[in-house]
Design a protein around this nucleic acid. Sequence first.
DNA 1: TAGATTGTTAATCGATTAACAATC
DNA 2: TAGATTGTTAATCGATTAACAATC
Lengths: 221, 221
Amino acid sequence: MKTGDFNVGNREISDAVIRRLPRYYRFLGELKDSGTERISSKELSEIMNVTASQIRQDLNNFGGFGQQGYGYNVELLYKEIGRILGLTKMHNLILIGAGNLGQALAGYVNFEKRGFIMRGIFDINDKLFGEYIRNIPIMSINQMEQFIKENNIDMAVIAIPKSAAVEVAKKLVDCNIKAIWNFSHIDLDVPAGVVVENVHLSESLMRLSYAMNTEKYGKEK
Amino acid sequence: MKTGDFNVGNREISDAVIRRLPRYYRFLGELKDSGTERISSKELSEIMNVTASQIRQDLNNFGGFGQQGYGYNVELLYKEIGRILGLTKMHNLILIGAGNLGQALAGYVNFEKRGFIMRGIFDINDKLFGEYIRNIPIMSINQMEQFIKENNIDMAVIAIPKSAAVEVAKKLVDCNIKAIWNFSHIDLDVPAGVVVENVHLSESLMRLSYAMNTEKYGKEK
DNA sequence: TAGATTGTTAATCGATTAACAATC
DNA sequence: TAGATTGTTAATCGATTAACAATC
């Protein structure tokens, strides 16, 4: 097992488990802030509305963080999950697309709390070049490749229309970007070793639409 | 079976299926736009990178839209999925929070294509009152309840800090809002009959962080 | 020590995939 | 008609829940 490899043994950790980790992290953070020192899987399960069994199973993918008869130390567990999620490392990132959504993302300071530092913003609109959002310069997309190399960038946020996203993603991969946070409504095709996390807002809206639609006329409970 | 109730028989349709519907819709829309008339589950499975079996199983939750020996008519299937997702209906919605993210969401015109019309924006910052984003007026949060009643609003987008989100959600529920698209980093607790769809960007970022972290040091494939 | 609660194994449940008869 | 492909049943796989011995 190499450094940074958290799963006990070498089993593959299921996506379902990983999807739940940030939520555990959020609740533990709140408990920590409220001064709670210890918590049992049972208590946490009631707060989070999941089963205690699931909590214990999930955590034991990564190690035995609890203690029989006591439960879990909140601060320790919070820190461990943070480490598992990679939040203790720093990453330099860039944003592509200074439209509405891009500007909102650039203005979102909470990234930095998690170790993600936005270094540059790229767009095709030359009216924006030279401007800044929170000290982050907006530059021409033509300068992107050079900037990535010179600034040790390993992650990119894509917030441009889908017609341009595929080409930009290709360039990013060529520049050895390791992670793409994709807000464009398209599935990006990247080689192994590059990770993509999609935020498809329109799909989220459609799910809400479905739920509204079936709730209204659905069978009574 | 009542109008608007799409599931065949009366089985509960699993969340896993529903989460895939918008993606089918997106791919079918692209196929339709490119002039493709018919497609088999096999062909679609190759484009979408899923199994043909899963596609057929998923669709047959809602009805037999295909034809043996032929496959599926793209335009018909696209329309059916749109209907299932409730995209043929109109909804009036409001936005709470005219910060960076809220402004980005207000500027996002694609909602309207799906039948979601933003009628008003509410904030606590009095410097914004009287301003407009795309003809949508920004008003005081104090006017919200009256506005909802007078404008037949059935959905709200919450894009405010989590400290204020719980209270606003409570007010919305009292005003008979049926759906909440929640961008605040908190789990909203709403009564049965009200649906919530969460977009937790920070959790998405953490998942990307996890993937980066394990990819780098992970076992070679 | 007795009580509490974990870590872990076993049982159950649900979702995905495979197979194939029905049928266009 | 023969070939293709669906709709659907059966088999498999994986995830969740339950149970309990280990142990703090």
